[in-house]
Design a protein around this nucleic acid. Structure first.
Lengths: 363, 363
DNA sequence: CGGTGTCATGTCATCGGTGTCATAAACCGA
DNA sequence: TCGGTTTATGACACCGATGACATGACACCG
């Protein structure tokens, strides 16, 4: 690889002059500039960032650590890793600021994280981002305070800047929208109890009901997530069965995610119910492949992964430039309700009619 | 950030001795080694790769360019970007070789590629990988021959090393397996005609039929892909309708991908057909979220993206070490048939029975 | 007891850029 | 025409690591 000295020799000038042409500082005569540029072009010269870095101590590098990648495979959660949209968002933000992103994943082994951080530090990254595969609490090994760290899709208990989806608001807006559409009996098949999203979304579900003056009915809420285990379908079937046999059954099923909604479609249809006329379904995540391909297309809530990535990138950039170092509060990113044909607007009258139809159908 | 000199001063030795401790070359006294290690620990010292690189001219970096990321968004093909599995595979291969991966995406603008390459060259990457979002021909700007380049999921006309899915073999094995299961009338709803996968898979479809002595019936093959346009569903509906009304209708529908299969499920059910007893469906891609969540689970062909990534990484590593520089042939990676409940084993007798059942059903 | 080999460590130059300072020529107003 | 300023350029040190080579202290051998 050609060096600045090779170029200097070819152009018959000193290395410093080539440097001046490269960086546009100090004055350079027109003829000289041209000769230097010609030499650079002919030799395919590209300046070495390493050498530059040694003086400038600005690497233009960002380190991105994700447990997402391989954890997904391990967790028997064969999802399509939509969380990599976060990586894209970060990339987009960094490209704008002329930063290069280095990525590494833990391969599902949390204990690899310190080594990955050291690798990044040895490349003198200007900042680090950790991306989790789902909204959760994490605990990372300490990072030198001179290297800012941002958490995306996760948070810790020492106030590291975090970018999180606003799960509470998302579910709240979905339920409020369902209520405006005339639904009053809203079932909620949640994800596992222990995950953060479930806690927040349940909260959003309850406050939306309360604001509309509707009572919270525990019979309409049930966790139906076994983390991909095959018995999950049975669990969902059972929950739906019991809820539909309530004296006042739900008119719409909210699901913990779009994948669950896909299963719910199948189960409801196997019971002979027509979607969306007889029963409605809503999801969460706006997982495009499912939500837009299903018939009828699925009403769901956007999980704003791309936007979260961009926000994480921007927050890191401002930390690098020294701003907002003392701000400990997480950034919440909201996703909008995607209203599609799987939920119909209905008046209380329709609900009554439907209930009688359903009671005629033998279990 | 602490330097090797800071550590040397703290430990009361010369920089060179610290270097020896770091790299384990030359002999170091036990007491000295301990003192140095203690100093390194206390100062949180991490050696600078940039400085190292200047002498060694080995950066330990790999540049990864993907058009995948944003092109997907542009192409109104809101998929879940399974092609990012390729990136994971590359990551996995590189982590093993202690290489760090830098990523950049074109943001859908092909003209950004030269700039991205220059950025990577300025970081003195030891190799480059270009990842395409689907099996296609590409044309990249020239790269200095000293920096090896590998194409993943794409190829060019100048013989750059490429890693490709073996689409022909995949479809061939699927169709052969369907034939072994007793199917003789096998419909094929293909992706767009102009894409490489369609050409290769159609070839596999035909040779599998030929090997089994079955005639190729053009009435059973139809492109049904409008790249995500909403009229796609109509197109598929029409194709299925015409095929089912043939005097000798198909017993199984092969789809261009799993997403199409998801639509086909809905269409067939809306015609009152029971899956898989009355009609079978197979997909392509083994897109987990769809294939495993659908009821019945979808028979499909693995699109071995992760493996392709690993192979791409390995091929690049061997090119970097100087091996196989003259090998111009693409590496084909095969994915296995994932046999699931959406296709039943059936004897010719069943087929006859089914046909009569179907003919009783009014169109 | 001197020569030789090994061990432990230090000195110095070097990698490829850039900041600092020096220098020479050109220009410019009085 | 002359001192002062600007313009164009070069010499040199330095960033942080490491390779080549040097040095001093021992141990060992004949």
């Amino acid at each position: 690889m050609a060096t600045i000295y090779d170029v200097a020799r070819a152009a018959g000038v000193s290395a410093k002059t080539v440097s001046r042409v490269l960086n546009g500082d100090g004055p350079v005569g027109a003829a000289t500039r041209e000769a230097v540029e010609k030499a650079m072009r002919e030799m395919g010269y590209v300046p070495s960032n390493a050498a530059r870095m040694m003086r400038a101590s600005k690497s233009g590098l960002i380190g991105l650590i994700t447990g997402a990648i391989t954890t997904v495979r391990e967790a028997t959660q064969p999802a399509g890793l939509p969380d990599l949209f976060i990586v894209q968002g970060i990339q987009a933000a960094m490209a704008q600021a002329d930063m290069t992103v280095m990525i590494a994943d833990t391969g599902g082994h949390q204990d690899k994280v310190p080594r990955l951080i050291d690798t990044f530090l040895s490349h003198r990254v200007e900042g680090l981002i950790y991306v989790a595969e789902y909204h959760q609490q994490v605990s990372l090994p300490p990072v030198p305070p001179s290297t800012p760290l941002v958490l995306a899709n996760c948070f810790d208990d020492i106030g590291t800047p975090a970018i999180l989806p606003d799960d509470e608001r998302g579910q709240h807006e979905l339920v409020a929208r369902l209520i405006r559409a005339g639904h009053t009996r809203i079932a909620y098949l949640t994800l596992r109890d222990e995950i953060e999203a479930t806690r927040l979304r349940s909260l959003g579900y309850r406050t939306a009901l309360a604001e509309a003056g509707l009572a919270y009915d525990p019979n309409l809420v049930r966790p139906c997530d076994l983390n991909g285990h095959e018995a999950e379908t049975q669990l969902i079937w059972d929950a739906i069965d019991q809820m539909l046999r309530l004296p006042d059954p739900p008119t719409v099923f909210c699901c913990g995610n779009d994948k669950m909604a896909l299963k719910v479609y199948g189960i409801l249809r196997s019971r002979g119910l027509r979607l969306p006329d007889e029963i409605c379904v809503a999801g969460y995540d706006n997982y495009h492949v499912i939500a837009e391909t299903l018939y009828p297309p699925l009403t769901t809530v956007e999980l704003p992964y791309f936007a979260m990535g961009v926000r994480a990138g921007q927050r890191l950039l401002s930390l690098i430039s020294g701003q907002g170092r003392e701000d400990r509060s997480p950034t919440l990113v909201s996703g909008s309700v995607q209203w599609r044909a799987s939920v119909t607007e209905r008046t209380p009258i329709n609900v009554t009619q439907l209930r009688s139809i359903r009671e005629e159908t033998p279990k």
